[in-house]
């Protein structure tokens, strides 16, 4: 792995949103043209290419972050991204029953890879979607938008203390869902 790849890898795995944002821009910029070419050359559309880029980069980010993919000296990050992309596109074509078209591409593999395993992200997303709208909004304001409790209180028309209490209640409900525990209360 080159030093540029290493920098990108560290930024992607970071908890700092700005670093992750920077790394995502870099990675997407590096691979978007190749992904587009691959999709257009293999019976896809511009829209498919955009979707596949989105899914691929997100999957790569999740894999790197979870530690499923370990950087190796002899492998570039690009090569890993392209492998994820090819597998994802193969799945799309299979769903569309166009696998026959792919027989000419020997490099496409159907071997299951880490990125094909059920995504933790999807599980989290599903649990989050089970929260009530008020909870979702409040947690998004805090975690997504990084607002302070005073700002959140203003947005949700409550006191800062009430917003804080509500936030913890929502979190407890989400935590219970994730841990498979039943919880009283209607969130």
């Amino acid at each position: 792995m080159s030093s540029a790849d290493q920098t990108l890898y560290e930024a992607i795995c970071s908890d700092d949103k700005r670093r992750v944002e920077w790394a995502t821009h870099q990675l997407t910029h590096k691979v978007k043209a190749v992904i587009r070419r691959h999709v257009l050359d293999n019976s896809g559309s511009e829209e498919d290419a955009a979707d596949l880029t989105q899914e691929t980069v997100l999957a790569v980010w999740a894999q790197l972050r979870s530690g499923h993919y370990q950087p190796r000296a002899e492998a570039t990050l690009d090569a890993y991204v392209y492998k994820v992309m090819r597998n994802k596109w193969l799945k799309v074509l299979k769903r569309r029953k166009q696998v026959g078209l792919l027989s000419q591409f020997d490099d496409l593999t159907e071997e299951p890879t880490a990125e094909d395993k059920p995504e933790r992200l999807a599980t989290l997303q599903q649990a989050f979607s089970q929260l009530g709208e008020a909870c979702q909004e409040l947690l998004q304001l805090f975690y997504w938008d990084d607002l302070s409790f005073d700002e959140i209180a203003h947005r949700v028309n409550a006191s800062a203390k009430a917003a804080k209490v509500r936030k913890y209640r929502c979190m407890l409900y989400l935590g219970a869902l994730l841990r498979g525990e039943k919880r009283d209360g209607n969130e």
């Binding site: 997407t28 910029h29 989105q54 992200l121 997504w144 979190m171 935590g175 994730l178 841990r179």
Partner: peptide, 26 residues
Amino acid sequence: QLLAADKALRELALAKTVRNAVRAEL
């Protein structure tokens, strides 16, 4: 429960950052 939720929410927030960045780059 609080710890699980906090971790999940931080991860979802980062995932959103990634999605937005990809969208912006595209």
